[in-house]
């Protein structure tokens, strides 16, 4: 007994030693990587013709101009509205659809093929058709964003349902729960990590869908700034919305991760987080 206690004390000490030289926090590593990247870009970017490329300080100057004349805020508003609508509906439709396809054999056999097929659909080619249906404005943009983002959400949810341990479903069955109750109270929470992964993947596709829509329907929003400045050989300005979009996607991803930890705090505890 004494022996065990002593050994435990020894490990505790060892643990403290490890704590003392804690590894660098993640965010410092991320920021450092970004700085190095920007420095290289600045250095090599300055050596090329400004039509063929640009560099961070020039892009930042263009960014300030776009903020001053209000174009950026306006374009952002124009882009975000169809984005949020299309992406939001994709989540609201995609999650239940994935749950049902994953849970019910008939639904899987009937609809699964449309989902796997739809995921690979070359949406750009269909834009002209969508324009015929939805016109050139807001609706078609929301539709393109919706179509781009719904498939990864459905597929991930579907896969998630497939991986729910049979034993947990049997807990519900042993308690005489109906299919609907099992779906809502057992399958849905057990699938949450997969759903969240799908929603994250969909962010990237939704952003791509948004820019495609702005290129190929009525030119507007952030995509509009890209096209217009490219036409004027103003490469620095062209990079501004591109970077804004990337920042937006990263921010949204972070927000979703935060939501996930808020709704499903148990997940981080169950899953192995240890990493080198």
């Amino acid at each position: 007994m004494v022996d065990v206690a002593e050994r435990r004390a020894a490990t505790d000490e060892a643990g403290e030693v490890v704590d003392a030289k804690r590894p660098l926090p993640r965010w410092i590593i991320t920021v450092a990587a970004l700085c190095i990247f920007l420095a290289f870009w600045e250095f090599f970017g300055r050596q090329v013709n400004p039509i063929f490329g640009s560099y961070p300080s020039a892009i930042f100057a263009a960014f300030i101009t776009l903020i001053r004349n209000g174009k950026l805020a306006y374009a952002l508003g124009q882009s975000l509205q169809p984005f949020l609508l299309g992406y939001g509906i994709a989540i609201l439709v995609g999650v239940p659809l994935g749950l049902v396809i994953g849970r019910f054999r008939t639904a899987e056999a009937a609809l699964g093929i449309f989902i796997t097929g739809g995921y690979a659909m070359p949406l750009v080619a269909l834009v002209p058709l969508l324009i015929l249906w939805f016109g050139l404005g807001f609706a078609v943009k929301a539709a393109v964003i919706f179509l781009m983002s719904i498939f990864p959400i459905v597929i991930n949810t579907w896969l998630g349902v497939k991986s729910v341990p049979k034993a947990l479903i049997e807990v519900g069955r042993a308690l005489v729960a109906s299919d609907a109750v099992i779906l809502r109270r057992i399958v849905l929470p057990a699938t949450l990590p997969y759903i969240m992964a799908g929603i994250r993947l969909a962010v990237g596709r939704a952003v791509v869908g948004m820019v495609i829509a702005e290129f190929f329907t009525e030119i507007s929003g952030l995509g509009g700034i890209i096209i217009n400045s490219a036409d004027n050989f103003d490469t620095a300005t062209m990079f501004v919305p591109i970077i804004v979009l990337m920042v937006l996607a990263v921010g949204l991803n972070w927000l979703i991760g935060w939501c996930e930890r808020a709704i499903a705090p148990w997940q981080a505890e169950i899953a192995g987080r240890e990493q080198n």
Partner: peptide, 19 residues
């Protein structure tokens, strides 16, 4: 016929709902 509340099951690995 099927499960019922007249019988209760204790599973080998408890099978609690982790959330």
């Amino acid at each position: 016929s099927g499960c019922g509340y007249d019988r209760g099951m204790v599973f080998q690995h408890a099978e609690l709902l982790p959330w």
